[in-house]
């Protein structure tokens, strides 16, 4: 078996924020009926997470579940276990009207950390990223300049950004330019 390699091999840029490629991340796209108890139980069985509220990400003991739309979740699990978890999920979903697919290798993942993290992302996405508006656990699908992307914020002030692998290099260069030391605007300075 060949060695899986992430889109940019851990590329990193340090400016007003640090932008780094997060490496391989197991991701399962799951669609189904959120109102079904069996659906929620299946999500919980492979992530340990409850169903996320609208626009939020729910962290679990074994992974995380993010709200993508009214009938779609993004489940995050360790990359090495994604096939096994997908099989377990499909088993748990027996009888449910649902569809799950491993999307791990279709994606690139970045982390933006440091004081300028909110500003770095705000410059390229049409989203209010002020501390009042965008809080830890918030999850947002939007666009980053010209391409689609999704991101969420954790309790340490670090954003995780997910985009298609095919535009991984574009997003890395975009975020790096946005984090350039001479590009600081200071809009979210306390």
């Amino acid at each position: 078996m060949s060695d899986p390699v992430s889109a940019l091999n851990g590329a990193r840029f340090d400016g007003i924020a640090s932008v780094e490629e997060a490496g391989l991340c197991g991701m399962i796209t799951l669609r189904g009926d959120f109102a079904s108890a069996g659906f929620a139980a299946a999500v919980n069985s492979i992530t340990g997470a409850a169903l996320p509220e609208v626009g939020r990400i729910a962290e679990g003991t074994e992974g995380a579940a993010a709200w993508m739309s009214t009938d779609e979740l993004l489940l995050m699990v360790p990359y090495a276990e994604v096939e096994a978890r997908l099989a377990a999920l499909n088993e748990a979903l027996k009888g449910e009207h649902a569809l799950a697919v491993n999307a791990s290798d279709a994606r690139a993942v970045f982390r933006i950390s440091g004081d300028g993290a909110r500003e770095t992302l705000a410059k390229v996405a049409p989203v209010d990223l002020s501390a009042e508006a965008f809080q830890p656990g918030d999850f947002r699908r939007s666009r980053m300049a010209q391409v689609a992307g999704a991101f969420w914020l954790n309790g340490e002030g670090t954003f995780t950004v997910v985009c298609f692998r095919s535009v991984g290099e574009y997003v890395f260069k975009l975020l790096s330019a946005s984090a350039h030391p001479q590009s600081a605007v200071g809009i979210y300075k306390a």
């Binding site: 626009g55 709200w67 739309s69 009214t70 049409p126 666009r143």
Partner: peptide, 12 residues
């Protein structure tokens, strides 16, 4: 009306 996001035109 589905996700509650106040989306500006470029998201739509």
């Amino acid at each position: 009306p589905y996700c509650g996001v106040k989306a500006e035109e470029t998201e739509l």
